[in-house]
């Protein structure tokens, strides 16, 4: 079966032009593969480059070298337009932070990925409501903007938004971090369901129990640290 994420020889450095043009190499020779229906967990200490790698897969950070294929598209060399389309149709991302237009009701925030795909508004809304209900966001909050919600509620809104469309590839950055046991269970079940429908998932899980339950393999990013004296 063809892999949905295929990374090889990937490198990344930051050049700080306004701080003496310091060049900071942060990654070299990164390689991994994620097949459909598989969940791969990234491990390594804080600062080892887990989030950097996830951001590169999403096209948020530019790759310095190597190849990074997501559903056949080389994100390292793709045009913005191709990446926008990839993100709309194929590649979902649940980040740790909720970034939304203030004032927009929660239900519309969650329905937005579907509306962007041209799904009918009532269908998108129904799907959004069922996810919010499943994630135990009280119904009285659905019509309010999530910007004033608690950290755990915002995270669940983010998860609902990330699972609204059945993306074939999903990136999950600590999806269970600030959740109670009940909601953690809901999120793990959502991940298992996504795997069952064939989604390829790359994630960061500090929660070891969660990691053990949903990850098929682990990749330690410490192996991708450039071999230079820092």
């Amino acid at each position: 079966m063809t892999a949905m994420i295929e990374i090889s020889g990937l490198s990344k450095s930051f050049t700080l032009h306004n701080q003496g043009s310091a060049v900071i190499p942060v990654m070299a020779g990164a390689a991994l593969v994620v097949a459909p229906g598989e969940c791969v967990g990234l491990t390594g200490q804080s600062g080892a480059g887990k989030s950097t790698l996830m951001r590169m897969v999403y096209g948020n950070y530019l790759a310095a070298g190597g190849s990074l294929r997501v559903a056949g598209l080389d994100v390292a060399t793709a045009s913005p337009r191709q990446i926008i389309r990839l993100r709309r149709e194929t590649l979902g991302y649940v980040s740790q932070f909720l970034r939304v237009v203030p004032r927009v009701p929660t239900v519309d925030v969650v329905a937005d990925p579907l509306l962007q795909l041209g799904v009918r508004a009532d269908v998108a809304r129904t799907r959004a409501e069922s996810l919010l209900a499943r994630l135990n966001i009280p119904q009285r909050l659905w019509s309010l903007s999530p910007t004033t919600f608690s950290g755990g509620e915002q995270q669940r809104v983010n998860i609902a938004r990330g699972f609204a469309h059945p993306y074939p590839v999903l990136l999950l950055d600590e999806p269970t971090a600030s959740l109670d046991a009940v909601n953690r269970e809901v999120v793990l079940t959502l991940i298992e369901e996504a795997k069952a429908r064939g989604a390829a998932i790359l994630g960061i899980f500090h929660d070891e129990g969660a990691r053990g339950r949903v990850c098929d393999r682990l990749v330690d990013v410490t192996g991708f640290t450039p071999k230079v004296a820092a």
Binding site: F14, T15, H17, N18, R55, G59, N60, Y61, L62
Partner: peptide, 18 residues
């Protein structure tokens, strides 16, 4: 020039970084 979040989160040019 590039994808909006990429230019804002990983700016390449000295001026964009500033």
């Amino acid at each position: 020039q590039g994808l909006t979040d990429q230019v804002l989160d990983d700016p390449q040019h000295a001026y964009s970084q500033l």
